[in-house]
Amino acid sequence: MTIIEFKNTSKSFGPLKVLDGVDLSIDVGEVVVLVGPSGSGKSTLLRCINGLEMITGGDLIIDGLSVTGSARQLREIRQEAGMVFQQFNLFPQLTALDNVAFGPAKVRGLNRAQARETALDLLEKVGLRDKAGHYPAELSGGQQQRVAIARALAVKPKVMLFDEPTSALDPELKQEVLNVMRALAEEGMTMVVVTHEMGFAKQVGTRLIFMEHGHIAVDGNPREVIDTPPNDRMKDFLQHV
């Protein structure tokens, strides 16, 4: 069953065409890894899915709703597609628990006790129940990112979008975040992940997309296309990551 469908989708920033007529269909349960050189449009592609960037041409349908629809529809899409950011973007004035409880309370309309319970369960899941009362500034980068994943999951999305989730982390902290993501994939969560972690792509990804100049240049099985890149530009790219 298709949950994300790009239909000849374009995105321009002024004269700069970042996505150029992308056609792509993602099914429920897929773990799609997006790679490509900087400026190739992979982050933009991801950010169009939850409408943080507005598409400028074609259409993009998420779970039956077009991102070009009303503001209300867009909010529905955003509740279905949780996002994790490179810079974590946790709310600094709230504790880890309140960060995670925020979505259920303010978006899903749960009462305080229910929201708190949901949040504690999710913190448990990302291994941070004991840090519930800590503020983001008191947590390591890896811990912050795990809280951010819990925060996105708390809204009960059908799809999770990851925008370079480990790029701001020290090597030893990356693994704890990747482990949480792997567990999520094993539960069957549909995921779209922009990353440079080729190990993760091979082990967890069900599909790898290599982007170049706003186009999808390669779309295939991660193990196959990483071991034998079908395209010179991709071969060159893989030597540098």
């Binding site: 909010r75 529905e76 996002m83 950011f85 973007n89 925020f102 925060r151 996105a152 708390a154």
Partner: peptide, 27 residues
């Protein structure tokens, strides 16, 4: 206040005014 926090608020499905009231305003 960094744009990232507004995006984080929008990304969980809040309307913009609520992001301003609950997240950006207090900061």
């Amino acid at each position: 206040i960094g744009k990232g926090l507004t995006e984080a608020g929008l990304a969980i499905g809040l309307p913009h005014w609520k992001v301003l009231v609950y997240i950006i305003g207090p900061l």
